[in-house]
Amino acid sequence: DALGYVREFTRHSSDVLGNLNELRLRGILTDVTLLVGGQPLRAHKAVLIACSGFFYSIFRGRAGVGVDVLSLPGGPEARGFAPLLDFMYTSRLRLSPATVPAVLAAATYLQMEHVVQACHRFIQASYEP
């Protein structure tokens, strides 16, 4: 005689993210093209705004409504940005000693503080014997 019953699907958030990534890969409902290092990357503004303080500040206001192509002058290079875009859609951040400086710079630019901290932990760990 509980007040109410709930079935919690514990995989739901990762299943939703997986479907969003599939939509991205197929260009379904992607509403912005990011020009990063001249390379065009399609994405969903809603995912970008949910994952990045920088995109939150750009797209939350009316100014972000009509924007469907966004170049990031003086912004991150593609080899630092692409792993972050994949992270947003997969929760997995690919890092290597060669790419972590570019990923760190991109995460700082995109105001993704938690990723910045993880990059610092990765760098720290790579110095430990």
Binding site: I49, A50, C51, S52, G53, Y56, M88, S91, R92, R94, Q111, M112, E113, H114, V115, A118
Partner: peptide, 22 residues
């Protein structure tokens, strides 16, 4: 090969929290 990738699990918050509407 995915198998060759060392995966470290990060349990903490991954992204910013969008402030709740006051």
């Amino acid at each position: 090969h995915e198998g060759l990738v060392a995966t470290v699990k990060e349990a903490g918050r991954s992204i910013h929290e969008i402030p709740r509407e006051e």
